[in-house]
Amino acid sequence: MNKFGVLSILMVLISVLMFFILRGPNADLPLIIIILGSLSLLGIIFAVISKKWLSGVIGVLSNGAVLVCVFFILLAYGIAG
C-alpha cells in the first residue's frame, strides 16, 4: 500500500472522527455536509491515484459509504429545512 492508499483510508477515519465531533442537536448541517463531502471526494481521488488494487477498492468503497451518509444528511437537511 503506497502513500495515496494510506491517505485514502486516513480520509475515512478523519471523516468519521469529524462526524462524531460535529454532531449534536445544534449542529451546523451545511458545515458538516461540506466537510464530510470534500473529505470523501478527496479520499476517492487518492484511492484512484494510488493505482494499487486493494487500497483502491477499500478506499473507494469506504469513502463511497461516507459519501452516501453525506447524501442522507443532505436529504434530511432538505426535508427538515
Rank of each mutant, 00 (worst) to 15 (best):
M1N: 05
M1K: 07
F4S: 04
G5H: 08
V6H: 11
S8Y: 00
I9V: 06
I9C: 10
L10H: 11
L10R: 08
L10N: 07
M11F: 04
L13I: 14
V16N: 03
M18L: 13
F19E: 15
F19R: 05
F20H: 10
I21S: 03
I21M: 15
L22N: 11
L22G: 11
G24F: 10
P25V: 08
P25E: 13
P25I: 06
A27M: 15
A27G: 11
A27H: 10
A27R: 14
D28V: 14
P30V: 12
P30G: 13
L31W: 12
I32W: 04
I32E: 09
I33G: 07
I33Q: 06
I34L: 13
I34H: 14
I34P: 02
L36F: 04
G37M: 12
S38T: 13
L39N: 06
S40L: 09
S40Y: 02
L41W: 03
L41I: 15
L42I: 12
L42T: 12
L42E: 06
I44F: 02
F46M: 12
F46H: 03
F46A: 05
A47S: 14
I49P: 05
S50T: 03
S50N: 09
K51G: 07
K51R: 07
K52I: 01
K52Q: 07
G56V: 00
G56S: 06
G56D: 01
I58W: 03
I58D: 01
L61D: 09
N63F: 03
G64Q: 06
A65V: 07
V66P: 03
L67P: 04
V68S: 10
V68Q: 08
V68L: 12
C69F: 13
V70I: 09
V70C: 08
F71S: 05
F71Q: 01
F72T: 06
I73N: 03
L74M: 11
L75C: 05
A76W: 07
A76K: 07
Y77E: 14
Y77P: 06
G78R: 11
A80K: 15
G81T: 09
G81I: 10
G81Q: 14
